[in-house]
Amino acid sequence: MPKNAMLIDVSRCIGCRACQVSCKQWNRLPAVKSSFAGSYENPSGLSSATWRYVRFRETVEKGEIRWRFLSFGCMHCTNAPCVAVCPVPGALIRRDDGTVYLDEQKCTGCKYCISACPFDVPHYDDAKGKVYKCNLCADRTGNGLQPACAKTCPPEAIKYGNRESLIKLAKTDGKKIYGENDLGGLSVMYVLQESPSYYGLPERPALPFATALWKDIIKPLGYLGVGATVAAIILHYLIIGPKRYKGKEGG
């Protein structure tokens, strides 16, 4: 289990988007031009230049508008599917403190992680040819600071700290935690007011079946198949040997 984690209690969230802004500010990410699509949600999703955004769920119930907010970014899974599929050593690594760290210098932009992520977090930047996502402000946490979003959250909906004590605290308040044990335990957990799918989160996040098949079955079978072919060739050469045609008539 990771040491540190972030716990986001959405019932405390006021939808101010300070986390979104402080993320952009600390990570020096440019603003993304967006257009109005009938919601206060802005921008409408993560991108290579937006690593955290507030997802808005605006519904009308009995003539009253009901707001639900979800500050969303990388979930920093313990058994992260993106780390499992990344082919470049060191480009996407899982750190002991709970961070899934993407090294921009090493990323080659193959996009394997994009297809593997159950949360649709990593995004490809066409201009830079690389993938980007939240690094849980590794440059801040490595120096004893809180991630920018947690530091700035005015209602303290985003809390960062020791994972065990965060879980304990929420449980003593009788709150249900999303992501405590999924994918080996997420380093970003939620206390939700609605079902996970209401917020566009998978009910039970897991390694995609096709990705597991690819990594754990197909690739090992490849070694087996190629190895068997080489073995068959060597055996054939030793036991049966070449087909010589000289001095023979017909076949």
Binding site: W214, G225, T229
Partner: peptide, 20 residues
């Protein structure tokens, strides 16, 4: 995304068969 995941599987399977 599901199609992209399948293409990775297919690309590898063709590779394995073709190398053999």
């Amino acid at each position: 995304k599901f199609i992209v995941q399948l293409t990775y599987i297919l690309h590898d399977m063709i590779l394995i068969g073709l190398v053999m």
